[in-house]
Design a protein around this nucleic acid. Structure first.
Length: 445
RNA sequence: GUGCCUAUAGCUCAAUCGGCAGAGCGCUUGUCUGUGGAACAAGAGGUUGCGGGAUCGUGCCCCGCUAGGCACCCCA
């Protein structure tokens, strides 16, 4: 038996790492999502959505160690299910299930929440939104390049001042390992340590590598190869020489060369990308080129990750289909936007507040309809009895830029008062010209 | 999942050694019958995150829980 009022009340709360999005935040989130959607569609990517909940076996096959971060439980029918961990695995499932309905290469975007049972931190939540764009059915580095270009365009469109897309290649890293004499079973440990270079430094990496079983010489060799810096194409030429005869190296280098040649043609500025072989990335399903967009200020880690995963669709289908794609993290991008004060947006969706009196309720409601038909977003006051002052104050507090005041004297004159709530400027306007006048005031902002 | 730090009014934060829980802003009302932001005055608002313990007595000490921040891990 629950109490209705009085008695013990239920404590209002939300789960750790989960949040409410109040209107002001929603307006910003929707704005950013709209920008991304435009860019994705401009590249011919189609929208897709999938269920939040999947059979657990769909999610667990290729996630490797991340399985422990997955929300999993048994549903009321006894099925083992899980909340999706990313948008890539569901895409692979969709392609496998609907291959007859999809023309390859299939380009899709997917903007939706995913769930990971991690400890929350700045820009890190248990429920968060990813904005993904992927290409399924093309093995060409051209597809990788387009994905990188979209990522760069998206971050550029938001106005993020300092971002760099680091580009690496799983196969090339493997070859580096071979060249240094690292046994295959230590490859994973190798990637993980190298990935931490900027955090723990060369000494830290050396310590970890030798602890994992590499000799000091091997560790030093790997570090030397991986930390080379320079103009990408020139650096690749050097690596081609250094890795001559090493299995897989040539193909990986050729992939990267194609990517770096095409990127400028896609309109990506050279300062926005770099060849960085210390990038490995954690997800097990990456098989080729991998990319990551990092922002140095504020420190929210990467704002987007990407890469080629040629084996993932095949895991559901039996025959292999190549795929590549990228993922932008909405929450982390919002952190950057907030930190730098980018994308100034109104705190409300309303263009105009309609203020009136008990004796002008009906005409005011009618006027609101007219203004809405003209395309304005009208917040009709619901408290005419509270007086003009209070209504104006409330409208201003909400952040509405303009008020229209309709009283009986205006009504008799066939006009209304239009007031700029920021400057206080006000004048009478004939009803027929009202919408235009309101727009003029808004544009003055 | 692990470690460290934190939690006091709607918000930001005070509160001496363990001794009556406060300020600023915001909010409500009034000065002000159809014009907000200013000023002045008054007022409301708290089981000090939740639960337990030690103490004559706790916002303050101890334990557990929950949430937030930072780091690890991992990642968007």
């Amino acid at each position: 038996m629950s109490s209705q009022s009085g008695g013990a009340k239920r404590q209002a709360r939300v789960l750790k790492g989960f949040r409410d999005y109040l209107p002001e935040q929603m307006i910003l989130r929707q704005r950013i999502i709209g920008i991304f959607r435009d860019i994705f569609e401009r590249h011919g990517f189609e929208p897709l959505d999938t269920p939040a909940l999947e059979y657990l076996e769909i999610l667990t096959g290729k996630a490797g160690e991340n399985e422990k971060l997955m929300y999993r439980f048994e549903d009321a029918g006894g099925r083992e299910v899980g909340l999706r961990y990313d948008l890539t695995v569901p895409l692979a499932r969709v392609v496998a299930m609907h291959q007859n309905d999809l023309a390859l290469p299939f380009k899709r975007y997917h903007i939706a929440p995913v769930w990971r049972a991690e400890n929350p931190q700045r820009g890190r939540f248990r429920e968060f939104w990813q904005c993904d764009a992927d290409i399924v059915g093309s093995a060409s580095p051209l597809a990788d390049a387009e994905v990188i270009a979209i990522m760069a365009e998206a971050l550029e469109a938001i106005g993020i001042p300092e971002f760099v897309i680091r580009i690496s290649h799983r196969r090339l890293l493997e070859s580096l390992g071979h060249a240094a004499g690292v046994p295959p079973e230590l490859a994973t440990a190798l990637y993980r340590s190298i990935d931490k270079l900027d955090k723990i430094g060369p000494e830290g990496v050396t310590r970890e590598l030798t602890a994992a079983g590499l000799s000091e010489k091997q560790a030093a060799k790997v570090l030397e190869l991986v930390t080379r810096r320079g103009e990408p194409l020139q650096l690749l030429a050097e690596l081609r020489e250094a890795l001559a005869g090493i299995e897989g190296a040539e193909a990986a280098i050729a992939d990267l060369e194609q990517i770096f040649r095409v990127l400028p043609a896609f309109g990506v500025a050279p300062k926005r990308y770099t060849l960085d072989l210390t990038l490995a990335r954690g997800l097990d399903y990456y098989t080729g080129p991998v990319f990551e967009a990092t922002v140095t200020e504020p420190k929210v880690g990467s704002v987007g990750g990407a890469g080629r995963y040629d084996g993932l669709v095949g895991a559901f289908l039996g025959r292999s289909i190549p795929a590549t794609g990228m993922s932008l993290g909405l929450e982390r991008i919002i952190e950057v936007v907030r930190e730098h004060g980018l994308l100034p947006i109104p705190a409300t969706v309303a263009d105009v507040a309609l203020v009136f009196f008990p004796e002008t309720v009906a005409p005011a409601a009618q006027l609101a309809s007219t203004l809405r038909a003209e395309g304005l977003r009208v917040d009709l006051s619901l408290q005419p009895h509270r007086g003009v002052g209070d209504q104006l104050k409330l409208a201003d507090r909400k952040g509405i830029p303009v008020a229209v005041i309709l009283g009986s004297s205006e009504l008799e004159a066939g006009s209304a008062q239009v007031k700029d709530l920021r400057s206080g400027e006000q004048c009478g306007v004939p009803l027929a010209e009202l919408a235009t006048a309101v727009r003029d005031y808004i544009d003055r902002a």
